[in-house]
């Protein structure tokens, strides 16, 4: 296709014909986002939470975090035992997953949720997925429950709440086709 000699009339006809071809058979690649949303792959790097029982408070995640989004909080649990747990500032997080990968005990629980919306700046900062008050209010500690499920449930402020889930499929003719898995 590369070469300089070109018939001008053929060039105009080709260009117009290609335009008409796509006009007649539109090959739309748009994902109508709030109405439809993608079912992401298993390894998609979305929001994550710390499994409290597995975490040993070693601070490696804090050390490796490139934007310094993680800071270790000194907490006291119900038994009066002191421990360190990571607090994640979602406003800084770049989802590189260095913290997830460096964890020696695999204490991070990952999810494919990437489109959680926050109403205010203070909600960015979370421990175990629960928003912290700013300045850090240590008296209002979260109780140590598994927060993982809360990321998978569609939260009310989730922009894609109630949307149709679609699966992207590669296609020789159309590049990407979005299929509704629920429909025949």
């Amino acid at each position: 296709m590369t070469g300089r000699k070109n018939n001008r009339i053929k060039g105009h006809v080709d260009a117009l014909a290609t335009g008409f071809k796509y006009l007649a058979e539109p090959n739309r690649m748009t994902l109508n986002y709030p109405d439809e949303s993608m079912n992401l792959k298993d390894n998609y790097r979305g929001f994550f939470a710390v499994k409290d029982k597995t975490c040993i408070g070693c601070s490696l995640c804090e050390i490796v975090c490139p934007p310094k989004a993680i800071s270790m909080l000194d907490l006291t649990d119900a038994g009066g035992k002191k421990k360190k747990r990571p607090m994640i500032d979602w406003g800084l997080c770049i989802f590189c997953y260095f913290c997830v990968d460096i964890c020696p005990t695999d204490a991070f629980q990952t999810s494919q949720v990437h489109d959680k919306a926050f109403y205010s700046e203070t909600e960015y900062q979370t421990v175990h997925g629960e928003p912290m008050q700013y300045p850090y209010d240590y008296s209002k500690r979260p109780d140590y429950k598994e927060i993982y499920e809360s990321f998978h449930d569609v939260a009310p402020d989730d922009p894609s709440a109630g949307s149709k889930k679609v699966v992207p499929k590669f296609d020789k003719k159309r590049g990407i086709k979005y299929e509704h898995p629920g429909q025949p």
Partner: peptide
Amino acid sequence: RAETVLQYMEARLKDYGKIWVRNPVVM
């Protein structure tokens, strides 16, 4: 899957050629 995408890309490059690369106005 990668092969599917590559074939798609090759087919699309032909259309790019018609509407853009060999478009007389572009030249």
